[in-house]
Design a protein around this nucleic acid. Structure first.
Lengths: 332, 332
DNA sequence: TTGAAAGCGCTAACAT
DNA sequence: ATGTTAGCGCTTTCAA
């Protein structure tokens, strides 16, 4: 059997390749009669035009690169996996491939595909270094950042409103009657830390409670260091009655520490997280946290990227998070 | 600035395009002098040949499609995410893109990319229907199945040795002094169920214990139904002292049930799982289970796929699982 | 409405 | 060793 090409189909239908091309792309310029004839052959043979020639012609790869952070924890992976669902969902609409690439942990580099014309856009998952942002901007390749913790103006991003989320989380604790509230924040991204601090202090001040360095200057970078941070927090003369953790995984580590130290959660001490990772539903007690629709985030990322691919400009968005009440906060 | 092409580089270096092509691909046929000259221009300009033309020429897409099951649970996602790490890791070596596609839940269909020449191979994650297997074989596209629960002969697959794993899990319980051992198995894939049963019975028989329908005829399909299955198991006149669950998520559901019914785990009843999903380390008590190196599975999948892409045939492999002792099994 | 042919950027066969 | 050129499969301009 001969390989199917437009040329071959044209021969079979007794028409020119132009006619076949027009039929394939639903373009006018062929008589109904010719169109029907060609369409029939296409249907019979199941012919699908080879994408590679289109790629060359239009100098497009029909690939979107998903850059994932290689040093993220499995907890984060799950978070990003859900975002990926949304991205995949939308990619079908646009008829693009989604290709995954790991971000090099050693040096900030765009994927090779950018330079060989093998990608039409990049979706960065999680924060990227300022250097990488600059490289992306310089390459002129359409890009978006999804779940950015800092507010970059150079690349459109989709980020949860972490300041508001921290504010709401703190406020929830206060509403539950807590007055000695502390925070374990992440200090890996400066801007994220600032937002957490701002949100926390806003809520405290509003309730005429004071936020001091002892209560909100404690930081962590992963579950393990959150364990240590919590130990420090609970070893002082006075212990807080509630702790807001700016990342769920911190809350998980911190609660483990509290339990190990003989505290009962939430009876002796309450915890609230931010992110609603899968695990939060399964630990004991189930973690109260701030959640967001991750699938929706993925869809938005895709839409924003496409706006750019089509030459328009896209605006960054800040998404609200919702309180998810479970069992780690006690009403007093 | 003119767009960089081989032609342009050739002009700049004052040589033919052939020379440039040879230099780019490290082929002999140019003098050292010419090579150096061309290389210099390439380095200076940072020229990268456009991949799209190569794709057309060789009729290759340099894309590998990763087919993921759309109806898998988040627990499974995590399992597959780790496999994906291995796949990504190896893809760099081969210089291929990894594109992800969701398997349609409604009908068994190969991705469109197969028919438009937009993929050079498929890695199926988890089991696929026999119909889909046939379609993949018919399309002649190189394929592998990773984490297959059944043993298909038509497509090379990488699967954990679930029979052996069930055998080892059961044997571990017996070695810990348990004689009343039951099993909660998955019956979604017939072949998987058979393997579980065989492994379980082998271990029981070897120890002169009897496996009867009451102890090994109980099945589930997810965490929730495992909860119900366990309820049935523990409502009889005699209750087993240990249960092997052929999937970790079943064990999680079953343990929750046992605790809800007032049993203490592992004091009153022990549980062992298979898979070592992330969650198993975080639940209370930490689940004893059978684990496997998932990153390695991904790497193997990639290697097997490439063997096929290069025209060789690949053999299915059965991977051993290792016992991971944690806190859900009591020694008596 | 139709068909012929150029051209996307590259590699490789062929001629020099 | 070097240069010229055909051709991968498609879309689209142009001429008929």
């Amino acid at each position: 059997m001969k390989k199917l090409t437009v040329k071959e189909i044209a021969k079979m239908a007794g028409v020119s390749v132009t006619a076949v091309s027009f039929v394939l792309n639903n373009k006018p310029g062929v008589s109904d009669e010719t169109r029907a004839k060609v369409q029939q052959i296409i249907d019979e043979t199941g012919f699908k035009p080879n994408l590679n020639s289109k790629k060359l012609l239009f100098n497009k790869s029909f690939n979107i690169t998903l850059m994932v952070n290689s040093f993220s924890s499995p907890f984060d992976d799950l978070f990003y996996f859900e975002i990926t669902r949304g991205i995949l969902n939308r990619s079908r609409k646009y008829n693009y491939n989604i290709t995954i690439a790991k971000l090099s942990s050693s040096k900030p580099q765009l994927p090779d595909t950018v330079y060989s014309g093998d990608t039409d856009g990049i979706i960065f998952m999680q924060d990227i270094s300022e250097k990488l942002v600059d490289k992306a901007v310089a390459s002129k390749i359409p890009s978006v950042i999804v779940d950015s913790h800092s507010i970059s103006k150079k690349i459109p991003s989709i980020a949860p409103d972490y300041r508001k989320a921290t504010y709401d989380a703190t406020k929830h604790l206060i509403k539950c009657g807590h007055t000695d509230v502390a925070m374990i924040a992440s200090d890996t991204v400066l801007d994220f830390y600032k937002q957490s601090l701002l949100g926390f202090c806003d809520a405290m001040n509003e309730a005429d409670l004071t936020a001091n360095p002892e209560s909100c200057g404690i930081c962590a970078r992963d579950e393990e260091s959150a364990y240590d941070a919590c130990k420090k927090l609970l070893s002082g003369d006075t212990t807080p009655s509630a702790v807001v953790c700016t990342v769920d995984s911190f809350a998980i580590g911190a609660m483990r520490c509290a339990k190990d130290m003989g505290f009962s959660v939430p009876n002796d001490i309450s915890f609230i997280g931010i992110d609603d990772i899968l695990l939060s539903r399964y630990i004991e007690p189930k973690l109260t946290t701030m959640g967001i629709d991750k699938v929706e985030m993925g869809k938005m990322a895709m839409d924003m990227l496409f706006k750019q691919i089509e030459g328009e400009t896209a605006q960054s968005v800040l998404l609200p998070m919702e309180l998810i009440e479970r069992d780690s906060v006690k009403k007093i």
